[in-house]
Design a protein around this nucleic acid. Structure first.
Lengths: 195, 195
DNA sequence: TGACATCCTGAGGGTGCCTCAGATTAAATG
DNA sequence: CATTTAATCTGAGGCACCCTCAGGATGTCA
């Protein structure tokens, strides 16, 4: 709402950097085992740091999540760029979509945060989400130009499908693994059979 | 986990029934405006009742959610039965799916609870979810028998698609309304074009 | 009018969130 | 090395919510 999303950046002093890294590591572990709503106080103590220190570096839960997932999303974007000139645009798109769903469901609760960030500026992850949106849109456009994907599918819809798939995967994470199947259905639903 | 899900039932004494109803009404309002994680203490005070009374009738947040949504899901099931002999099984299925998605996204957070209940017995909503599962499976089978829907789609997958759609709708509820589009994509993806 | 099962109350202990005034300490400077 | 300064750290404390339970209140039935 205030227009200036807080993006966590590594602090300057040595002890600051040490703690920043320790907190990030503890957060990754906690998020993966407990979900995006893991206790921040647990994370702080796990990192051997007082709660105030955590808040100094990551004033918001969202900013911590952003920092913990930035690498993965950056990889996703750069992978898209590497795929952008692939001989078979449909293969490229499907490979990327699989990877995207995997990243979106790194831990429970992440998709929800990303989905919100996608269209809500003023959110820490919004920038990265925008970049992803662009990469995905490029791959989609290419596949559509090649006549492999229904031409009326918009990038926004693509991301709805991706996040829906990730959410289902997230839910199923405990019991049955009905997740790769979901994406396959989606893919078969949007592709145009080769003549 | 303990195998005996608690299903809220109307109490016997007059004051008990009064309070039960007041709590339920307050809960519906709160869930709709705030989501499934609305404050239980707010709900209690909104119902003019002490917090202990709320817990007496609904020992668990899940049991309160179940009670608040039971009617809607019952309607959904009975509607499926009414549709079961329809002349066009595909129309019947799609109509029912639209209605299901609408019910699943009555308020923020509901789909998640239902998705969990679907495959986790010992959950208040599990019984109702099972009934829905059966109704949906019937409609699906009919549409498949008529050659209108891909024959390899399983009921479990149908519900993954439905809950995915509901989740996306739930997310989009605030801003853009990219939700009916999602279900349309899914539907077009699973149907077999008429020859 | 009892008598009793049902129901209600709200204080209290527990957890997590977030802030802030004061104590520390890394690093730059002379 | 001593001093200074700005960055960093600490953790008590206020707030909100969760859930429980012992004791009080009350409707119901005979």
């Amino acid at each position: 709402m205030d227009g200036k999303p807080y993006i966590a950046q590594r602090p300057k002093r040595a002890d600051g950097r040490r703690n920043y890294d320790a907190i990030l590591a503890a957060a990754r572990k906690a998020f993966e085992s407990t979900g995006a709503d893991a206790s921040l106080e647990d994370i702080a103590s796990q990192a051997g740091v007082a709660i105030g220190t955590l808040y100094r570096h990551f004033p918001t839960r969202a900013s911590l999540v952003e920092a913990a997932t930035r690498d993965g999303l950056e990889n996703l974007v750069s992978h898209a760029e590497r795929l952008s000139g692939a001989p078979d645009p449909l293969d490229a798109l499907t490979a990327w979509m699989r990877e995207a769903v995997a990243h979106f469901s790194t831990f429970r609760g992440l998709v929800g945060i990303l989905a919100r960030s996608m269209y809500d500026e003023g959110t820490p992850s919004h920038t990265m989400c925008n970049a992803m949106h662009r990469s995905g849109a490029d791959l989609l456009r290419a596949a559509q130009a090649a006549g492999s994907v229904r031409p009326d599918l918009t990038p926004d819809e693509l991301f709805d499908l991706l996040s829906g798939a990730a959410w289902v995967r997230e839910q199923a994470a405990g019991g049955r693994d009905g997740s790769p199947r979901f994406l396959r259905l989606v893919l078969e639903g949007i592709t145009i059979p080769r003549a």
